[in-house]
Design a protein around this nucleic acid. Sequence first.
DNA 1: CTGAAAGCGCTTACAG
DNA 2: CTGAAAGCGCTTACAG
Lengths: 343, 343
Amino acid sequence: MKKTDSAPATKRVTITDVAREANVSIAAVSRAMNPEGSSSPEMRRRILEVAERLGYKPNRLARGIKSQSSLIGILVTNFENPVYLAILSEFSAAIQRHNCHTLLINVNTEKSISEAVSLVMEYHVDALIVTSASVPPELVEACARQNTPVAIFGRDGEDSGASVVTCDDVEMGRMAADHLIDHGYRRLAYVGASTKEQATLDRKRGFIERLEQRGLTLHGVGEGHRHSYDAGYEATCELLASTEVIPDSIFYFDDIMACGGMDAIRHEFSHRIPQDIGIVGVDDIRFASSKSYDLTTICQPFTEMVNKTVSLLFVRIKQGDTAPDRIIMPCHITQRGTTQHVG
Amino acid sequence: MKKTDSAPATKRVTITDVAREANVSIAAVSRAMNPEGSSSPEMRRRILEVAERLGYKPNRLARGIKSQSSLIGILVTNFENPVYLAILSEFSAAIQRHNCHTLLINVNTEKSISEAVSLVMEYHVDALIVTSASVPPELVEACARQNTPVAIFGRDGEDSGASVVTCDDVEMGRMAADHLIDHGYRRLAYVGASTKEQATLDRKRGFIERLEQRGLTLHGVGEGHRHSYDAGYEATCELLASTEVIPDSIFYFDDIMACGGMDAIRHEFSHRIPQDIGIVGVDDIRFASSKSYDLTTICQPFTEMVNKTVSLLFVRIKQGDTAPDRIIMPCHITQRGTTQHVG
DNA sequence: CTGAAAGCGCTTACAG
DNA sequence: CTGAAAGCGCTTACAG
């Protein structure tokens, strides 16, 4: 490994350099750089000009030690569902629009939770976003102790002290049931994961609740080990293999499972969709609207949800000790080819 | 908005608290907390115990202002291709394993580049990873000036001063051509995007080069505006509508375009895959191995590539002014149902 | 509005 | 190995 002969690293230009060059105090520079700082227009103009000329960028680390880090932590647990890429994209864009940056925390490892707690404490993130996961009590506690606002996205975490932005999972189940029944299906089944997450339970519960209200009984259940394509595939195989009369429709916990399930239905069992079996999913992932799947699905307004989450958080950051909000957004169903069968 | 009546934010415990409690100097605490700091076993033990008891976590922001921020920036430009979710997952996990954290930079907006530069300068990231995008000269310059190592992932950026970890795009083109020809296809077409990215040009070039070497000529080209499902769909429609004799096989820039293309082929033109048209993609996204697409594709060893990128970067962080590496990983083709046609 | 000064939490030579 | 002290780059009362 030879040393590169590139120019030696020039010292970064600091507030002191700007102050010296502009012939003012460093306090003056600090104020000029901060919109809220009191600075005469003339002075600010001059300082900003010098700063620009010197290429000065305030060191956020140094700033963070006294005031805010401008860092927003985002906890992601599920890297299998492609919707999270879109969600991550929206979040980081929204956060950047607020002149902050995104600390991505991958919570998939064993020691993940303590990791996350450490992070909150070590980087002094201004706020924490938890996507589609229940927040462990330790985390909540750690954040509360540091007065760090937390928002849960896509899950309901009542009483957790965190803000919540999500859709009503029970309602999703009802929508799916209504849609299928309205389109003439009568032997409704559900496929999800056997996890004990609230969202899983709620979607299933709403689904069953509504179909019973309408005089039907659940025709079957398939449970995979996770919310993935493979789990959807396998759970569907088991479901179809175990029932004497196959269901005429299946509501899946999410699109990725539904896609796995559809492939099982078509390629393992040669049933037709939507004639033999109708399908409803949740999320509207990119492939839901592909010609291959053309999946009827329940859409959550992710973009609005993200923006809402971020703006709520910034209100809490600014106003300090504000009570958390709980926002349940409306979702809607988008009909596509998997439920065209009419009675 | 009522104020919450939760306990007031307790002051975070700092190095001073630990020093006082343990009856030592703050310097001693600092050394005890840092593996490299010289500290007698007995003293370290005692301090660590106190730190633990008090729940002390060093403030990385404060640390970062003198030494390293432990922040690794990762620039992501493409949030449409699901592979990036997997890649992001691997990167953040690898970075966390090194006891650092991931600053996600969404470079999709207008002012993206200057944003990125600012970020590097403002947060003093220890290193920067650029995924599948060419690095703008300003960025390279800014990083070089601050001695921040840069790694380009999934693109070749020779002479950029950055480390590179990628696969050989020209070779991918050749592999695709060989595979198709070996399987009896003779009227080979290419579909990609009309962008001037090096990867786009290289895959296409390798493909054409090889098929000409083997006595064929390119049968047609389709160019979308981006690397997306829709672009693949549309470009394929144009390609098939414009040729008198349709191609008998298509090499797509990547899987996501290939999926769009396959849907166009099947649903717009009712051609059969692989009998009428064979397909090869690149990336091996989750849906490539679904029953619906069952796509023959060129696989890059992403996990190894990510780990290599991260470890290279950490060597550079540790050793200071080291020359950048350039690592070209081997890729391989995975045959599935889209190229089963034999002559 | 502006400057001098103290302080944020940590690290790192420098003596001992 | 340990402590006292200076310093990192910034912010924020406090006087003027």
